[in-house]
Design a protein around this nucleic acid. Structure first.
Length: 832
RNA sequence: GCUGGAGUGGCGGAACUGGCAGACGCACCAGACUCAAAAUCUGGCGGCCCUUGUGGUCAUGGGGGUUCGACUCCCCCCUCCAGCACCA
């Protein structure tokens, strides 16, 4: 190749040029009126915090590579983006900077949209949604009303998690190690409040069962959800209280151990405690001590909290054995789970064992392991496994498995128990004492009580004119023109609900709205949603494995039951990318280890940044950021540009591809072979494992070979190679690819260009190097024709001088020939 | 504790169904170009040993096993990460 002046890779010039062109004519739009197969690829929408961070860039670089690939494969791709625009930071910013949350949010959206453009992510912006717009949130309200009608939204007085920093209620899922998920050092407090709840527990079993459909979800996400739902199968058993007309109900998964119960233990908040201590000597002081127990208890009790309890002075009757056993109260029994009461079986439950050791309660072994004999007197820890029952009346001799069945059936037959399944999952509290969220569409009337806002009055608009203090109650309480309204039923004076919805409501169904963002009759246009759903590929961070992804699955089932959508699972395939780490910690403002995407674009360009985040690690693993690594990719990108744009002027007048009927040179064959191997590798990877890091390696190998063979490849073959290479590059570095495409004389958007097919014949090596092993150790290599027969290969291996020398004097026991792979000769150790 | 995942050169990582361990990149070393430097291009680069070779040997967290052959499969153990955690 003649050396003219080597053009420099000016990433800013190239990228700005294509940003302008792409903005002018959007070629990225999806189209429902087509017979091409549909593909819905979705990345989790960002909160408009102000700027995108590297985690976003990683997420969107993965999704965009896929979207571009699928378009080139001829699919009709829906690739939308939007804004999870409600939420607390907007209010915090309002307090800090005296700027209205709406303005702050919209400004951020405008800036971040610019960032998306700078990165060349191919979104169909006609589908854009923003959850803080009435056009969107009115459907939150609509869905709320539908759920209210079906009893899936309800109001109850409950103890709620209260974050003193946010001054608001938190869902259980938003409490992390006893602290607020946003304020990791602020302990969450408990408060009694009237709250709105979504009855997600009605779908607990469906959420668990339907996981069978989620074959293409990562195992760890399913495991986390399974854990969170926390199904456990057991029984409810009633213990009558001696001398009172009362019974205590316990939940247990181990009825088989009930003959070993030595106490009934209640949670300190158990409602029966008052009645139980009545008439007991010292009852008042017992109540006082229980109050202290509650006060002393840490916000979140863990397994290592010292067990504390006290005897209530009453006894209960074991319905199986008739034994009188003491009733205690203890800090380790949770009111929120099961019935708030347990039977204490020290021999077969570690917690009960520790409790009984401290308070000198007896230990009675009723289940024996298969081999040893346990004695309650000398037990050092509870035996918690299944075994064979002893000292258990008529059930003695049964295995635990048998006993669980028979004893539950017996309890049911006698009327003091029944089988029960409990879940850890709790209903979802959605009320927030906050301004920047969806108003909950109900009215409180002195005459009529809770009155839903009629559908034709939706949306209940969020007023703009508010004073945000960040303290106490919802700011909406101080807006009289919002607060005061007429009761829709009796027209009398009434007050609006002033709490707003948890923003997780917004993000639980947004992906349906993308299919018809301006539809006015319902949350979704049935035709559009049924065409696009389910989402073929959803991509996002692992941090959403529980909250967002369980709520979304719950909403999918509700929407299905409302007849709005057909499928009960919205996401066919889920991909969770790893975090972006720097200096050993997740990038964050507080750690001061942020790398700003804008800085990277300015310094190296969007293509380099995109390629780096794909190259540095496989997408599902955490990525350790390295400034040097970015430079490495930038070198590669520049190298590509220099080579291709140097060749382009000369090649654009040459026909692409090898002339028919003409024998190719060795170099031509070599480069075409590498090219087709690369096509195969990248294509298979997009269809399978998504190890984009190795795809980029493959592109590097191809470029290395181009440099090695510089000047030795015929022009038509070189043109074909480079043009194909540009297509392969385009999902990863769209600006550079498009620029080079133009330099080769093409005008169409690369997304309209078909993805290259690989030719298996061309990809095939003519001559392959076959390793020859002796007794499994590599001893030599031979060159063989591709497709050589097993016998020939064996013969060739045995004839190799090195091999022949080494096997001389040994007996060849066996020769293993793996076609096109290897030969292993097994010989006797000594010369026999 | 339970659940899920991961341990490979100085570093990020590769090896897809058991078949040449270390692709590709970073860092480093050397050479070319240059007055010089940067950039660029070329070459080298797991450890140890020797007779320096088309050499030997060790090596994928540790120990055992299956196999002609194990980073890959099986058993036991160690370490790290993540989620849940007094859930009865």
């Amino acid at each position: 190749m003649t050396t003219t002046t080597t053009p420099n890779y000016e990433h800013l010039t190239i990228e700005e040029k294509w940003q302008q062109r792409w903005k002018q004519h959007n070629d990225w739009a999806a189209d429902e009126r087509t017979d091409r197969p549909k593909y819905y690829v979705l990345e989790m929408l960002p909160y408009p915090s102000g700027r995108l961070h590297m985690g976003h860039i990683r997420n969107y670089s993965i999704g965009d590579a896929l979207a571009r690939y699928k378009r080139m494969r001829g699919m009709n791709v829906l690739h939308p983006m939007g804004w999870d625009a409600y939420g607390l930071p907007a209010e915090n910013a309002a307090i800090k900077n005296q700027v209205h949350p709406r303005k702050w949010t919209l400004d951020n959206i405008a800036y971040m949209k610019g960032q998306f453009e700078r990165f060349g992510f191919s979104y169909d912006w006609r589908k854009e949604i923003s959850t803080c717009e009435p056009e969107y949130y009115r459907w939150n309200q609509w869905l709320f009303l539908k759920m209210l009608e079906r009893g899936l939204a309800y109001r109850k007085n409950s103890r709620v998690n209260w974050c003193p920093a946010c001054q608001t209620v938190l869902a259980n899922e938003q409490v992390v190690e006893g602290c607020c998920w946003r304020h990791e050092t602020t302990p969450v407090e408990q408060k009694e409040l009237e709250q709105w709840f979504f009855r997600i527990t009605a779908y607990a079993d469906a959420l668990l069962e339907d996981m069978k459909e989620l074959q293409d979800w990562p195992e760890r996400v399913l495991a986390m959800q399974r854990n969170w739902i926390g199904k456990s199968v057991g029984a409810r058993i009633q213990f009558n209280v001696s001398g009172l007309q009362e019974a205590i109900t316990v939940f247990t998964t181990r009825v088989d151990t009930i003959y070993g119960a030595t106490a009934v233990v209640l949670a300190p908040e158990h409602p029966l405690i008052g009645k139980l201590v009545q008439g007991v000597p010292g009852g008042e002081s017992i109540l006082a001590r229980i109050k202290e127990l509650i006060a002393r208890r840490p916000v979140s009790t863990a397994g290592d909290t010292e067990k504390e309890g006290l005897f209530l002075g009453r006894f209960a009757v074991n319905p199986f054995s008739g034994d009188q056993i003491p009733i205690w109260v203890a800090n380790f029994v949770l009111m929120e789970y099961g019935t708030g009461a347990v039977m204490s079986v020290p021999a077969h439950d570690q917690r009960d064992f520790e409790f009984s050791q401290k308070y000198r309660l007896p230990v009675r072994v009723v289940v024996q392991p298969p081999k040893k004999k346990l004695d309650g007197m000398f037990l050092e820890e509870a035996f918690v496994e299944y075994g064979v029952l002893v000292n258990s009346g008529p059930f003695t001799g049964l295995t635990s498995e048998q006993a669980l069945q028979k004893m539950t059936a017996y309890a049911e037959q006698k009327g003091f128990g029944k089988p029960e399944t409990t879940y850890r999952l709790k209903d979802w509290g959605i009320s927030r004492q906050r301004y920047w969220g969806t108003p909950i569409p109900v009215v409180y009337c002195k005459q009529c009580g809770i009155v839903p806002v009629p559908y034709d009055q939706l949306p209940v608009l969020l007023p703009d004119n508010v004073q945000i203090t960040g303290l106490g109650h919802s700011p909406l309480r101080d807006v009289p023109e919002f607060l005061n309204t007429a009761c829709p039923k009796c027209q009398g004076p009434a007050e609006r609900e002033t709490d707003t919805m948890d923003t997780f409501v917004d993000s639980s169904w947004y992906f349906y709205r993308y299919t018809s963002p301006h539809f006015r009759e319902a949350p979704v246009d049935p035709a559009a949603v049924n065409y696009w759903f389910p989402i073929d590929q959803y991509i996002g961070g692992i941090e959403h494995a529980i909250l967002h992804l369980i709520y979304s699955r719950f909403f999918a089932k509700v929407l299905r039951d409302l007849g709005l959508v057909k499928t009960g699972e919205p996401v066919a395939r889920l991909f969770t990318q790893g975090m972006v780490i720097k200096d050993g910690a997740k990038m964050s403002k507080s750690k001061g280890n942020l790398v700003d995407p804008d800085d990277m674009v300015a310094k190296y360009g969007a293509d380099t940044t995109r390629m780096y985040v794909l190259f540095a690690a496989p997408p599902e693993k955490d990525l350790e950021w390295s400034d040097k690594g970015v430079e490495g990719i930038h070198r590669f990108v520049s190298r590509v540009y220099r080579y291709a744009s140097r060749c382009a002027p000369e090649l654009r007048s040459v026909p692409a591809g090898a002339p028919a009927g003409k024998e190719l040179s060795g170099e031509d064959k070599k480069i075409l072979r590498k090219l087709h191997q690369t096509i195969r590798r990248i294509t298979q990877d997009f269809e399978g494992r998504w190890h984009f890091n190795t795809d980029i390696s493959a592109l590097m190998e191809l470029v290395n070979l181009l440099y090695e063979l510089d000047g030795q490849i015929s022009k038509p073959v070189l043109r074909q190679t480079l043009e194909t290479f540009i297509k392969l590059l385009s999902p990863f570095a769209p600006f550079l690819a498009q620029e080079l495409w133009e330099e080769f004389g093409h005008t169409e958007d690369l997304l309209r260009v078909p993805w290259p097919d690989f030719d298996a014949a061309l990809a095939k090596e003519e001559e392959i190097e076959i390793p020859v092993q002796i007794n499994g150790r590599l001893r030599s290599k031979i060159l063989a024709r591709e497709g050589v027969s097993q016998d020939e290969l064996e013969e060739q291996a045995l004839a190799d001088p090195r091999i022949a020398h080494m096997i001389a004097g040994h007996r060849v026991m066996k020769v293993i020939v793996v076609p096109s792979k290897l030969v292993n000769i097994v010989i006797s150790e000594h010369g026999r």
